[in-house]
Amino acid sequence: MTITQLSYVLAVAEEQNFTKAAKKCYVTQPTLSMQIQKLEDELDILIFDRGKKPIELTEVGKKIVHQARNIVNESFRIQDIVDQQKGFIGGEFRLGIIPTIMPTLLPMFLKTFLKKHSKVKLIIEELTTEEIILRLNEGHLDAAIAATPLENDTIKERPLFYEPFTAYIPDNHRLSIKKKIETTDLDIDDMLLLEDGHCFRDGVINLCKALKTQNISSFQLESGSIETLIKLSNEGLGMTLLPYLHTLDLSAEDKQNLHHFTEPSPAREVSLIFHKSELKMQIIEALHDVISGIIRGAIAFQNVKIISPLPK
């Protein structure tokens, strides 16, 4: 059997279609089908149940795909070893970033990183944490930037910074007269949230649930973006919590509605995460160094309490 054959098997397992898998692998469909057939003949088993639509893995096929992914990933390590030995930082690098981090952090580091490491071709996707973990495990991402800790045995985490939560409170709100607020001031009944699927939403819920007096079923108004939450808050529909970096570009008028927490401030840990196989570590280290260096000038908070991004 060959690495190429195993790569074809992985492509079909993911696409559940021979034609789509062939397109993904940049080969003709007959070529891909023939190589998989040769592998099945050599092993004297069926990897795919071709009678199902879409195509499904057989029971033994599922075990083969799991092992094939490990083998293909390990084969990439050979080139990785050579690149590290030569001190080469370049090539294609696929990076995922969660939606509540992408619009604020990416503009801060992207230009600097590309200028410093011009041989790296960054392919960046905005993805939820759940999608990121799946793609890291399937080998479709090299690394990601997400809120941590994730408590996932297959993922390694390198903290980049700690981003405090900041309260956005309009003038007509009961807390608007307070310069600094306590977590015990929060009332879930007048809190605006991001839609389900955002880990920052889960962090806010975890912060409120720690008070033991809140009922998350009372959340009624939710939005897909932080910008919309700010606009809804300005309309008097409630307060919201923002990641600190989102507050830097607010208008002077909107900044009047910002209220910091008393220390230790609730905060999220933002990390560079990658698969435990540790491929392309030279690029991961380069990303970490650039982002860490830039973010030090933007966030000076030290006394923080990390709020878990995991749904509880």
Score class of each variant (00 low, 15 high):
F109G: 11
V290N: 04
F274D: 12
I71L: 12
F109Q: 12
I155D: 06
P103I: 09
L57P: 01
V120M: 04
E42H: 05
G203R: 01
F219K: 09
S265A: 07
N70H: 04
T148D: 04
T240Q: 03
I89D: 07
A68D: 07
D44T: 08
K209N: 14
S33C: 05
A300D: 11
D49R: 03
S308L: 01
K38R: 14
P159Q: 15
K115Q: 14
L6C: 03
E263A: 09
E56C: 06
E151P: 00
I216K: 12
K179M: 05
P243H: 01
F274A: 13
I216G: 02
S75Y: 08
F301A: 15
P99Q: 01
T58M: 08
D171P: 08
L134S: 15
L43K: 08
I307F: 08
K276N: 13
F161S: 12
T184K: 15
E74A: 10
L6I: 02
T184R: 12
N70S: 11
E126Y: 08
Q35G: 13
A210T: 11
Q29D: 07
D202Y: 04
L310P: 02
F219M: 09
L134M: 11
A146K: 03
K280P: 04
I169D: 15
V65Q: 10
H260P: 08
N257T: 04
L6Q: 13
P264M: 05
S251H: 07
A13R: 02
L237K: 15
P107R: 05
F76I: 03
D196H: 07
A13N: 05
T213C: 09
I123S: 07
D41T: 05
E278K: 02
I181L: 05
M108Q: 11
A210M: 05
T2P: 13
D41F: 00
P170E: 09
L46Q: 12
L232Y: 15
G90S: 00
L245T: 08
N303M: 07
H173S: 10
T128M: 06
I89E: 05
A11C: 02
N206V: 00
E182S: 15
K52E: 12
E151W: 03
Q5D: 12
G224V: 03
L134D: 14
P107I: 11
K156C: 04
H246R: 12
K280V: 02
M108L: 11
